[in-house]
């Protein structure tokens, strides 16, 4: 018997209406998330990973058009919800941790007042208790201050408290929550998110461009390239057995994999223009690309424990040369 997933996204497309016509930002992204699971989305900037989060929250800008054959949260369809229904779900059902804590609260209003907007007339003792739970005991006395008087780490904890703890959502969307923070603070914030996951059984979609961060927090990872989910696999599987050439290139570029003095391999070229051509978006940069890759877009297929969107996925690292696969 299979239980219903907390979140299931199927064939999500997001297009942006621009001066140059409709530009795809997300193309055919599908994934599922169980309660208590952390699913990572990793990719370079512009790969569409944050757009996926906005689409789930239905918070895309007005110029964006989203389509999905399915986008269910706890069995109800997010795509067909009215504005009122969505407002009921945002914050209470789905929480969002923003990317830039320093600018995510109004700069001209004291924190205490802003907390009241989000939490209603909660008694001071409860607020202190919530702050205590995210390690912000000391901040409780400074609530009459303004956001700029606090550090990025403090604000991010506060936002996590608001988004993930105070109103007990069951799904948490984390949009690069640590990119603007110092390394030490970053670790603390990651630990806090995992801690809340353990205590509250949250399902988390964790977006980051940093594979190192992803490796620390995620159970499963999806790799995005030019708007597509090119590979999705359990964390160990992805790191040990990357199958998509882009994933392999990403892993090769991880500094931790290198010994001192060794040159880090970078991925040649850029993703610019990847969506202009038919075929696989990664083909122009792919060392294994064949003629077929440039003509036909690969379907998602299951290889081992992973889902891969490639004509020539490798079964195991280095085991399968592309020429042989083609032959």
């Amino acid at each position: 018997m299979t239980t219903e997933p907390l979140l299931s996204v199927r064939d999500l497309d997001v297009l942006f209406d621009t001066a140059r016509g409709r530009v795809p930002a997300v193309r055919g992204v599908s994934f599922e998330l169980a309660a208590g699971e952390v699913f990572g989305l990793v990719g370079e900037s512009g790969s569409g990973k944050s757009t996926v989060l906005s689409a789930i929250m239905r918070l895309l800008p007005g110029v964006a058009v989203a389509n999905a054959s399915q986008m269910n949260f706890q069995g109800s369809d997010l795509m067909s919800m009215s504005a009122g229904q969505l407002r009921g779900i945002r914050g209470t059902g789905i929480g969002l941790i923003p990317q830039r804590p320093m600018t995510s609260l109004s700069p001209v209003t004291p924190l205490r007042k802003q907390l009241r907007w989000f939490l209603g007339d909660m008694p001071q003792s409860e607020i202190v208790d919530l702050l205590d739970q995210v390690g912000l005991r000391a901040v409780a006395e400074r609530l009459d201050g303004y956001p700029f008087e606090f550090s990025g780490g403090q604000l991010q904890r506060l936002l996590i408290m608001l988004a993930a703890l105070a109103r007990r959502p069951s799904l948490l969307l984390a949009d690069e929550p640590t990119t603007t923070l110092d390394a030490t603070v970053q670790a603390q914030v990651l630990r806090l998110i995992l801690d809340l996951r353990d205590r509250l059984g949250l399902g988390v979609v964790f977006v980051s461009h940093d594979l190192g961060v992803i490796a620390q927090v995620c159970d499963r990872v999806g790799v995005m390239y030019a708007g597509r989910l090119v590979e999705a696999a359990p964390i160990g599987e992805l790191f040990d057995n990357p199958r998509h050439p882009y994933t392999q290139a990403l892993l090769r570029a991880l500094p931790s994999r290198y010994k001192r003095g060794e040159r880090i391999k970078v991925i040649e070229g850029t993703a610019a223009g990847a969506n202009r051509l038919p075929g696989c978006a990664f083909a122009p940069r792919c060392p294994r690309a064949e003629a077929m890759c440039r003509e036909q877009e690969p379907e998602t297929r299951s290889v081992g424990g992973a889902l891969v969107r490639c004509h020539f996925p490798e079964d195991a690292a280095g085991a399968n040369k592309p020429k042989e696969a083609a032959a």
Partner: peptide
């Protein structure tokens, strides 16, 4: 487009609150 209005929406704040306390005040 500001982060605080976006976060306000993400927290499900009522439209009136966002208009008055976030957009207008700033």
């Amino acid at each position: 487009r500001t982060d605080y209005v976006r976060f306000g929406h993400a927290m499900g704040l009522p439209e009136r609150r966002i208009n008055r306390s976030l957009a207008f005040r700033n």
